[in-house]
């Protein structure tokens, strides 16, 4: 399989000046996404995971934010492109679906017309032809009787169908990269499974790259092949799925893994991460996670650990040595495995 790099983000910083101070929503982030990847970005609210992708698409207000770094999409730096050039990429080569399908479609326009509009804004084809393509798209994402549902308004669709329509719209131009921002969070569990399946199917059929942003480690571990864990505007750990979930290196990743109740580990107590995520205006000195970290030691409150491979085979941003990490993680897991068996 040939790996073609679709998106390369280099040292991206997105800072919003506000009355209270500078909000560092994204603060020095680098990652790459290849064709065929499902790149999972995990983080809690305020970790910067959504801002990163909105910035890549040129949807953050450039006047309201200081943006530095590079976002190379198929070799072109999106941050240097003008508004019109960016618009031509959006929806055509790079598409996005969002969390809440209830609010993401315009309530006053028919679903079909909204997709037709998406087609016509990049392709100069007759309207009839665009309508035909919309029927095909709606059918392809599993909406029954697409010709009839074309004429429906969004409120006549269920949540799952709206998300399907959003996917149909995103795939209208056969983009290279699909960014899915919490695509299943607002949906029912059984419908979530349908949508995740659909995204996976779309990925293989159209041979594209997918960025999947979510707070749900379970979702990421099921569908992503690469994972990046974000905290306070930075990546704290990054690697293949097996690396990150099989051999997690960062105390924050550990905390996330331990906070999720597992259906099959009944009885073991959850280990929450103490405290709350820091304010993005006054991030702590040193490692931004150190005030919540049970393993902090001397350099943590002074030196900001850079993200690099510390001997585990994949990069992380924690001062602990790889050997130390293996020991601590094994210790933390011990009571859990005991309780489960």
């Amino acid at each position: 399989m040939s790996t073609e790099t679709l998106l390369e983000v280099k040292d991206l910083r997105v800072h919003f000046p506000t009355g209270d101070g500078l909000v560092k929503a994204v603060d020095g982030l680098s990652f790459t996404v290849d064709r065929g990847d499902t790149f999972g970005i995990v983080g809690e609210s305020g970790s910067g995971k959504s801002v990163t992708n909105l910035t890549a698409l040129g949807l953050t207000d450039r006047n309201a934010a200081n943006i530095t770094g590079e976002v190379l999409f198929k070799g072109r730096d999106l941050l240097k492109l003008g508004k019109e050039d960016l618009r031509k990429i959006r929806g055509k080569e790079m598409a996005m679906i969002f969390q809440d399908p209830f609010s993401c479609l315009h309530p006053f326009y028919r679903v079909g017309d909204q997709i037709v509009e998406a087609i016509l804004c990049h392709d100069k084809i007759p309207k009839k032809q665009a309508e035909q393509r919309t029927y095909d798209l709606l059918g392809a994402v599993g909406i029954p009787k697409p010709k009839e549902r074309f004429r429906d308004f969004p409120h006549q669709y269920s949540g799952g169908m709206r998300q399907r329509a959003m996917i149909a719209m995103a795939m209208a131009h056969n983009p290279d990269l699909l960014i899915a921002d919490e695509p299943t969070t607002a949906l029912d569990v059984t419908v979530q499974a349908q949508i995740l399946d659909l995204i996976e199917r779309v990925k293989t059929e159209f041979d594209i790259g997918v960025i999947l942003i979510t707070h749900d480690l379970g979702v990421v571990s099921e569908v992503a092949n690469k994972v990046m864990v974000m905290y306070a505007g930075r990546a704290v750990e990054m690697g293949t799925r097996d690396e990150v979930f099989g051999n997690p290196q960062h105390p924050y990743t550990w905390g996330l893994l331990e906070s999720i109740p597992h259906v099959d580990h009944k009885g073991s107590k959850l280990v929450p991460i103490e405290g709350a995520p820091p304010s993005l205006i006054r991030t702590p000195n040193g490692c931004s996670f150190h005030p919540r970290c049970p393993h902090r030691f001397d350099p943590c409150d002074k030196d900001d650990p850079e993200i690099k491979d510390r001997g585990a085979g994949h990069p992380d941003a924690c001062h602990l040595s790889a050997a130390e990490k293996t020991r601590v993680w094994a210790e933390r897991q011990a009571p859990r495995t005991k309780a489960a068996s």
């Binding site: 399946d197 979930f245 597992h262 259906v263």
Partner: peptide, 20 residues
């Protein structure tokens, strides 16, 4: 349908229900 996470060893296939 619940995402089980990486450690899932039961190997159960996900049953995706049709429709809403």
């Amino acid at each position: 349908a619940v995402p089980k996470g990486h450690s899932d060893s039961s190997g159960s296939e996900r049953i995706v229900l049709e429709g809403d």
